[in-house]
Design a protein around this nucleic acid. Structure first.
Lengths: 212, 212
DNA sequence: GAGTGAAGCGGAAACCTTTTCCGCTTCACT
DNA sequence: AGTGAAGCGGAAAAGGTTTCCGCTTCACTC
């Protein structure tokens, strides 16, 4: 959901297209397919080879030419941004699903762990965020804007059920966990300050969230 | 070149300078001078143009050829590493100087602020640490190893003078401040979660360190 | 001082990626 | 089928890093 595509463009004829705001420009079906393929390939390649993997690797995996990549993502950072946003979106989407499947407090815990996992496993993506590149400046905001509603819903459900304390705000939690996962940069992921450590701290935090 | 040979070689022969059975390899004076020039130039260029600045910019500023750069720093990451270490060393060296010039508690506060400044201003360097590149894996350890003794001395002096609480360990403080300075990646440095915010949090922490 | 072996230097060239460009293909709509 | 534009592939340009090697300069000896 990172594309400005208005699914099912409502204006089939709309002769007066050149009107205020959004352009009713339709995208060709193959182009849309290619963008998805590129995004999927990039996600896979970033996971296995890091965010600095050559573009060629991605286009090869997607079975497309480099030109196609750069048509849809003019700057390399655009691709990274799209992948990050897609990850965030997926994380946000998991909220309602978990809420439907578990007790409120459990759903909350599960979601926070998923969020932790996202931050902890996409090391390359996280580092891109920290690169200082102006291209990524908007991402933290997107992060917060997208996840806050989801987390707020989970928290509220827990509070309503009386199993989650009511004095914690979603953005604070999002920040706190992000900080915990960033703890020590180059540390061994399984070492004293690595990802395992972060996970433990988050579990602690989750326990603290429950009432009783 | 173009440098006035200010000094003459000191050690004629018999490498008595060798320590711990290391190889008595002598380095040519001009080479040593060039390494310093390169390091100074890199520091300046990294500050103004970021860690991704082209190598040419650095060698031009140093008045040397690219070949010379790559002779001394075979990988780009070697240069970054060297600059970071040099920054850390400078920070550590400031400890005794501050201790001699101020009351123990004030010296401690001043040093912690300098440390904060180091973390907060060298954005590019910090991001390099977070890049996940294996080349930088050893740096956090160097960080801790180099700064811990300095900070421990400052803390101890304060404790001895009775003006600093005695239940805080140096490494914990180093970690805590590092975390505070990393708060939110792409945020505006002067915004709600930017560097100014980090500085405020650190000041709070410093106040908490004093007794009474 | 000159002589000499080797460390060190400069910068062109090789090598890689990213980004641009453009002729050809494919789609969407008649 | 016909048509015009969106979209595609991949070669080439642009830009950066790393290697290579002939020449220079140093350190040290006689």
């Amino acid at each position: 959901m990172t594309e400005p595509d208005a699914k099912k463009a409502a204006a089939p004829k709309a002769g007066t297209a050149s009107k205020a705001g959004a352009a009713p420009k339709r995208r060709r079906a193959d182009a849309e397919r290619n963008v998805s393929a590129l995004l999927a390939a990039a996600k896979k390649v970033f996971d296995t080879s890091g965010v600095d993997a050559p573009a060629k690797q991605i286009t090869d995996l997607a079975g497309l030419g480099v030109g196609t990549l750069y048509r849809h993502f003019p700057l390399r950072s655009d691709l990274v941004k799209a992948v990050v946003q897609s990850n965030i979106d997926a994380c946000a989407a998991a909220g309602p699903r978990l809420a439907a499947a578990h007790e409120p407090a459990d759903a909350l815990a599960a979601w926070l762990r998923a969020y932790t996992e996202l931050l902890g496993t996409k090391r390359g993506l996280a580092s891109a965020l920290h690169s200082g590149d102006p291209a990524y400046e908007a991402l933290p905001g997107y992060f917060l804007d997208t996840l806050t509603p989801t987390l707020t819903a989970l928290l509220d459900a827990g509070v309503a059920a009386g199993t989650v304390r009511d004095d914690i705000a979603a953005p604070d939690l999002i920040h706190a966990i992000a900080n915990l996962c960033l703890a020590v940069p180059g540390a061994d992921p399984d070492g004293p300050y690595g990802f395992a450590h972060s996970r433990r701290m988050v579990d602690l935090l989750i326990d603290g969230l429950r009432t009783g």
